[in-house]
Nucleic acid binder design. Sequence first.
DNA 1: ACAATTTAGTTCACATATTGACTAACACGC
DNA 2: GCGTGTTAGTCAATATGTGAACTAAATTGT
Lengths: 190, 190
Amino acid sequence: MSGPDGQPTAGRSPSPDFDAAPDGEVDYWSFVDHFAKHAGEQRPWLDLEAAEFFMTLHRAFELIVYDIRGELEQRMSSAALRVLLVLTTVGPSTLLRVTELTGMSRAAVSALLKRLEADGLVDRSPSPEDGRSIVISATAEGKRACDEVYRDYNARESFWYAHLDPEEAEAIKRGLSRLAASVSEARRRS
Amino acid sequence: MSGPDGQPTAGRSPSPDFDAAPDGEVDYWSFVDHFAKHAGEQRPWLDLEAAEFFMTLHRAFELIVYDIRGELEQRMSSAALRVLLVLTTVGPSTLLRVTELTGMSRAAVSALLKRLEADGLVDRSPSPEDGRSIVISATAEGKRACDEVYRDYNARESFWYAHLDPEEAEAIKRGLSRLAASVSEARRRS
DNA sequence: ACAATTTAGTTCACATATTGACTAACACGC
DNA sequence: GCGTGTTAGTCAATATGTGAACTAAATTGT
């Protein structure tokens, strides 16, 4: 995956020029390798390992998520699924709580809930404890719709998950968790 | 990370009800654990391991990318950086090639290039080989702007990358690469 | 050579996200 | 109990993305 590929760059000009691009067949995914091989040439300051790591993370993530999301078809937006999963997992919550748990902005959640309410998937009622707050809960219909869609979504997750050996999956999960926990912590302090 | 937490759910109702939510202090990141602990209760069909894995991937990714992207400030959109990195790495390319390598839609690239050209960061010239195509190249100014911004971006990547031990980082990269290669392959076939 | 098909790029309609201004309700200090 | 500041939610302006329709140029088949 990261060995040489016997395609020496045709031009040996030391300045940033490009001769007939020796691209071979680079696509969205293989661009990561291509970048790792060539990006450092004119960027001596680059931390190439870090760049490659995060580009791998980024593109792998996008490829996988795009695929899994395809399972939703037109049935529900991924934002809607996210909100409904939160609601069905933690129970009725204020809008602000939903924003915290979903990572979406208040405005986005507000707009989305309006649509979901119109579709009968959530109820909103004024909070008895705080006149500013509204309490959102998934309706029976909302739970049903969420489960129905999430079932297929999760089946696709399961399909890809099976491509990893358990040890590998665990290593990825552990590593990313540590990293995310650091970021999350740093974020909280700021 | 995945052990019990001594916070038994107060309500023992077998049906999907929620009593006083025993949420403790769940936030965007810790919701992954919370979900892993509780989402299976009413979803016997769930592949919980897969769900947890991809939710970890998803949220860790969003946290990290959000942080790194902050380094761009208002200087450049991440889409613009992405396009300029492609152009400076593979050299002048047609619009369609840019869409392939960036993963953006033709419409998005077309619109973005218009802005970048207006800012003097890219040139577009008709292709001598194909009257339908245009060839995009980064201007000197574009390369400069790209490097200037990418330097800080990469510095932040480097900062977080240093939080992983090399072995761990390699394991993540390898695992995700295998997975992405499978997805990419499946995608190409369809 | 030319009709039919495909391909490259643009444009339009639409969906959805973010930020910041705004409103209403709470909370504190006195 | 009343101003001051803070917090919850909505709204408006803006940015940016997607997919479909459209135009023009290439390619293919006969």
